[in-house]
Design a protein around this nucleic acid. Structure first.
Lengths: 121, 121
DNA sequence: GGGATGGGTGGATGATTGTCAAACCATTCA
DNA sequence: TGAATGGTTTGACAATCATCCACCCATCCC
């Protein structure tokens, strides 16, 4: 799973930067499915379906029982799978769904997944 | 993960029977994605996309390097997730995709998955 | 500067998983 | 009856994973 490197000058410059993530063409289906085959990460995906930027604070998602570092771990798995992108701004990180990249790579998959995830148990 | 029981009279009667599998309404998205988040099982899924019945022999699928019992294990995971159904006939088992059940439960998902899986790396 | 804040890192731990090997079981066939 | 066939089960083992904890790091603000 190759991951694009990120310039360390970001912290020097203080400008917004992206955390490492695979290029759109390198997004792998098995990796994506493995990433989403977890209840916590599927919950996160559903909350990202509004295409807005989200902080790393999972309050209001029913994930309050999890440790900070556990949520951080799950968000990294999603990002390294190519599902999300993370913008660093100051001490905040803003996570957003990579909808366009996913739609290009796997047409129809994301919509079907979101619809399925929104389905009652 | 509840699994419907199967009458043990099958082996006495000698009639065709289904191996245990979840009811259509009980198919769980996380379980399905977890099942498909493995290269071997995604390969199996792709080979089942023809809606035909398949024996448990994985020859011709590029899985010749795997032990019999390993393939058997992967097929059980798919069945218990609700992805496939298995008919027992004599000493043979015939595996088929549960396309109708999956389409009903998660509209569009299977087609998108199969299209994505058929995509070149 | 110094505390508070948002969040990640690294280690530890218990659970799950993928794989193989060997034994097993029911069925078919000679 | 005995051997071959198709497939499962059980056990073992290494690898991965989800989780927590303690600590760290950079940024923001008083």
């Amino acid at each position: 799973m190759s991951v694009t490197s990120v310039t360390s000058a970001a912290s020097v410059m203080g400008g917004d930067e992206r955390l490492p993530q695979p290029a759109a063409a390198d997004i792998d289906l098995v990796t994506v499915l493995h990433a989403l085959g977890d209840p916590v990460r599927l919950t996160l995906l559903l909350s990202y379906a509004d295409d807005a930027e989200h902080s790393c604070d999972p309050r209001g998602l029913g994930l309050e029982h999890l440790h900070k570092s556990t949520v951080s771990h799950h968000m990294r798995v999603l990002r390294e799978a190519g599902v999300t992108t993370t913008r660093v701004a100051g001490r905040n990180r803003f996570v957003r769904l990579r909808r366009a990249d996913l739609d290009t790579r796997f047409p129809g998959l994301l919509d079907a997944l979101l619809a399925a995830a929104a389905t009652p148990a």
